[in-house]
Design a protein around this nucleic acid. Structure first.
Lengths: 214, 214
DNA sequence: ACGAATATTGAATCGGTGTTCAAAATTAGT
DNA sequence: ACTAATTTTGAACACCGATTCAATATTCGT
């Protein structure tokens, strides 16, 4: 046969059937809901398939196994958060405090727009980090690294308190965040978003004490 | 037979064989370690039995099932924390800020003395609260209630900032706590206890901003 | 030392679910 | 319409570990 490799490649392209719809995404969405609802271990693959309008078998076409789905959920959310924070980080028109507030807003918006994802993070991430320290999405580390950088710059510019340990601060903030977002996701009426957002910003910057006292 | 009930009772008491050792406690301790190590779902009953030097069957004499063991772990730690906080709460010789600091110390000491328990709480409590809202140990609610009371009193005395939502604050603090204690439990060398304790107190009271700036 | 009550044991059971894979369905080019 | 490649399907498989329970061991009063 006189076909050169370029020609063959063209044929392959044409013959390649496009998967219509977006099963891969549908599955991820459905899985996020089911994981949030039942927790990873009690979540049934059959339930995910049902919610995604997909057969059980299809799930294993797009994902290696149940764990792989969970990993992809983290990959997606932290990847997106990292990219957003990166853009924010590069802006030179903002003061450090403005950058800090914008960062809080960013995380806040992302989690409230994806409340099921927020719940999954709150429930499963700690355990995953504890065990799969290495295989956990690198976006998370990158994201955290950027956040720390912002605080460090603020300290250098004497806007933030130099006695604060940056690493401890980020755990402090993220831990608080996780708890509050979950509380909101569970009983939204008890945790009005605006109030939560305002309190996170205020508490992390000014703390509990009444400075106007006397 | 002419035995009155008191006599029968006496007989029962005498005949009742005392379980020597403290298998019940041994099992709870072993389970805490295994849950911390592997997470609740990956923890094997056989492993717990092995660590407790007890047969598999014995576990089911003292506990109804795997879940029951987990519940008892929470019952124990929150019960103890509640009792301690209650004593603290009643002291009239302390200022509000002193009470607040003492509360932090109390939680801190309790978790650092029981690091496996701290990890279990960090990994499993959120999920349990989410699903078994009602059946979760009442000591937790009581404990949290007392904590809120302390903050509320502080606000009344104008020591704490009145603009802070008490409910939100407690989630803020406990969430931050959980994250930091876990981080310490995982890599103690990166989170020296004194530093973490000082930062939690400082951040929750004064926040990130540099007030001495100028 | 004996017997009755209690405690301990761990092999076998049993239910449940993640995963596989051979068969069926769909697509697109000719 | 026919073919070949690709995608979808879901019943069946395989495994695993929580739980059970009949048998054994231990304790203690007499």
């Amino acid at each position: 046969m006189n076909t050169d490799s370029i020609f063959v490649f063209k044929i392959n392209l044409n013959v390649m059937r496009k998967k219509e719809g977006n099963k891969e995404e549908d599955i991820l969405k459905a899985a996020t809901e089911v994981f949030a609802q039942s927790g990873f271990y009690d979540a049934k693959i059959s339930k995910i398939a049902e919610m995604a309008n997909v057969s059980i078998g299809s799930i294993y076409v797009y994902y290696k196994n149940k764990n792989d789905i969970l990993n992809k959920i983290f990959e997606k959310i932290w990847g997106s958060l990292y990219n957003n924070l990166d853009s924010l980080f590069k802006r030179s028109d903002l003061s450090m405090v403005e950058k800090y507030d914008a960062m809080i807003d960013m995380i806040f918006d992302s989690f409230t727009e994806n409340s099921a994802t927020a719940i999954v993070i709150a429930n499963e991430q700690q355990r995953l980090l504890l065990r799969n320290k290495d295989s956990f999405t690198e976006y998370y580390d990158k994201f955290v690294g950027l956040g720390e950088e912002i605080v460090r710059e603020g300290i250098k510019k004497k806007v933030f308190n130099p006695n604060i340990d940056v690493n401890i601060f980020r755990h402090f903030l993220l831990g608080a965040f996780r708890d509050l977002i979950t509380s909101w996701a569970i009983v939204p009426e008890e945790f009005p978003l605006n109030l939560v957002r305002r309190n996170i910003k205020f508490l992390s910057k000014y703390g509990l004490l009444n400075h106007n006292q006397e």
